[in-house]
Nucleic acid binder design. Structure first.
Lengths: 368, 368
DNA sequence: CTGTTAGCGCGTTCAC
DNA sequence: GTGAACGCGCTAACAG
């Protein structure tokens, strides 16, 4: 019989010690916490009382999870420093509604992001997180990150991404919304249209988009939105309308501003801007202000997302059901956890016309 | 010798099975993952290879955590539906910078909030989360939630709260900032000043603040900011200046708007508004717009936080170092985890004057 | 460099 | 209603 050295007073009290202190079996103590109906109310009270005086705070969550094979945690994978995730009101709104949906089913959200620290393995968090499921918010197609996620063989929901055989998907009609935006501008007579793109590829981009770079797009929303813009222009009325593409390094107001400034100075004939997010559009508004270009008289600006706050900026934009998307993601995850089959949901988008767009000015380039 | 029924093909592959398949010991496999220097590179490659063909995805995170006594997760407790946490840009910014700071040390953030579901125990998430530390973002003093957090006896950081003997604290000079804001208005000659308060007490409040309710304040920032306002008025120059208090149900733009409308209609002599957050101030701006009151000519508005985006609203506000606060919280947590003693940090606040405040109009109440 | 052993703290059979 | 044993999957310590 092996000895029982069982750390006697090593700070942490265990269920076993409570059992011994009261002279009952461990099962009884366990039942006191997990199945009140399995023992008399009086005994249960005694157990809890002893636990209290001993300073035992209840079953260790970790051991319980290991035993039960369930953690009650869902991981959310974001393919960029979390600081940017939270800087985008639309992303924040999305996360909030996912959290809400899962929380109602007693799941909590674990934020997983690659360490900015270059020497650490960026896949580690995803590989070593104790979760019951994974939600991927913004990952490049065919990336190591995505592979790492899928290789965990957990219930997985992919958001705003290409459909995948091994995971549920929730997304929006990215291209359709983009087409509406471009058509709106074409209908207003614009022909020199700048495009502020979200990140296209993995290596940090930025600035004028070359043909080669455009072929490397790995982010679904970026690819689809651009396709939507292109399709509208290809089929649109002012046959000579053209798109001028720039890529913002990251989805921040500052980068949107810098990017817009660069574009507008390089192409002063530009009379309208298609922005792939409201955050970028916000930056564009600042840029216009800096340059002294009146919006919408001199420059029309369209965003994407209809983020909270965009109404107050009076920004014309493509609306997407951000909160519902989050809710659907939560539901999809719960369905997977419940053993149901995967689904793939595409939600609609709409154009919201506000005050940042107007007809193309008669003499566009006269500011030069 | 007990039998070894060890689930043979129950879907999940274990480290032990990999060891057996290759004919090595479990320790060797474990070492292949955790201490590459403890075995030959060749053997290690063999192990990983076998694992790959067997479909073994590496050590189970849960078991590893149990064994190591460390999860790599820090819980963030928020005392309200997470949806509101994310709706406030300042809160989002704060969370982002906490996440960033911890992530650099390979910790991830677990979002903990009470289930909105009324039948579930709101303390359960906090009690049963597998975490190495807890950060409390917005909890009522002396609340069950706070008690539940502290009773876990984990490294704990309290944000924007009264100092506590058992936890580190990070906060700002709430009262000082509020005083600056009120002094600014007094200096501009305002005497009828409305106050849009954040939540005061536990039971849902809202509307005119009674004396009794004011005595029940349980939220540190609310209490301190109000104290700051009061002190400025008590010591300020227009001796007859008065404060009119209203409480917003929650910290949302919509509630701020409703609250401001109610206040302004009840007290039309009001020429200035002190708002306890930029979110509420944002609502106030909308209310002014609705009423047709020009800002700042007819009504001055001051916010609190200097949230991202407030500059574009041209809002005069009290700035706080939100990102640095997050970073400090992360550092404080890391220090606690490293065994260092608790610290208590108070960060400064400043007044940022923009365009939403101006001198009191000569004929204030003439709109009636 | 490799193998053996002993738990981490708990939940769950069983038999009583 | 209760108690004893086993093992969830892994890693640290030690023995070889």
């Amino acid at each position: 019989m092996p000895p029982k050295p069982a750390a006697p007073s090593s700070g942490r009290i265990t269920l076993r010690e409570v059992a011994r202190a009261l002279g009952v079996s461990v099962a009884t103590v366990s039942n006191a916490y997990n199945r009140p109906d399995q023992l008399s109310a009086a005994l249960r009270e005694q157990v809890l009382e002893t636990a209290r005086t001993l300073g035992y705070g209840g079953p260790d969550p970790l051991a319980r999870s290991l035993r039960r094979g369930r953690t009650g945690v869902i991981g959310v994978v974001y393919d960029a420093p979390l600081e940017y995730a939270f800087a985008d009101p639309a992303a924040a709104q999305f996360l909030g509604s996912v959290a809400q949906a899962l929380q109602d089913a007693s799941y909590n959200l674990l934020l997983l992001a690659s360490p900015a620290d270059t020497q650490a393995d960026p896949l580690l968090p995803v590989q070593s997180a104790s979760v019951d499921g994974l939600i991927v918010y913004s990952a490049a197609q065919n990336s190591d990150l995505l592979r790492a996620v899928l290789s965990r063989n957990l219930p997985t929901v992919l958001v705003d991404q290409d459909q995948h055989a091994q995971a549920a998907g929730v997304g929006i009609d990215d291209a359709g919304g983009a087409t509406l935006a471009a058509q709106h501008l074409l209908g207003l007579g614009h022909t020199h249209i700048g495009v502020l793109c979200l990140e296209l590829g993995l290596r940090q981009g930025g600035g004028r988009v070359t043909h080669e770079r455009e072929r490397q797009i790995v982010y679904h929303p970026t690819a689809e939105r651009l396709r939507g813009y292109r399709e509208a222009v290809a089929a649109g009325t002012p046959a000579h309308a053209q798109l001028f593409l720039t890529e913002a390094g990251r989805n921040t107001i500052a980068d949107g501003e810098a990017c817009a400034l660069e574009l507008l100075q390089a192409e002063p004939q530009t009379t309208a801007l298609l922005c792939m997010s409201d955050v970028l559009a916000h930056g564009a508004l600042r840029a216009a202000h800096t340059l002294g270009w009146a919006v919408p008289q001199r420059l029309s600006i369209i965003g994407y997302d209809d983020a909270p706050g965009s109404a107050d900026l009076n920004l014309t934009t493509v609306w997407q059901p951000t909160s519902e998307k989050g809710r659907r993601v939560g539901q999809a995850m719960l369905a997977l956890l419940g053993g149901e089959a995967q689904v793939d949901v595409r939600l609609p988008t709409r154009l919201i016309v506000r005050g940042s767009t107007a007809a193309r000015p008669a003499t566009p380039a006269q500011h030069l």
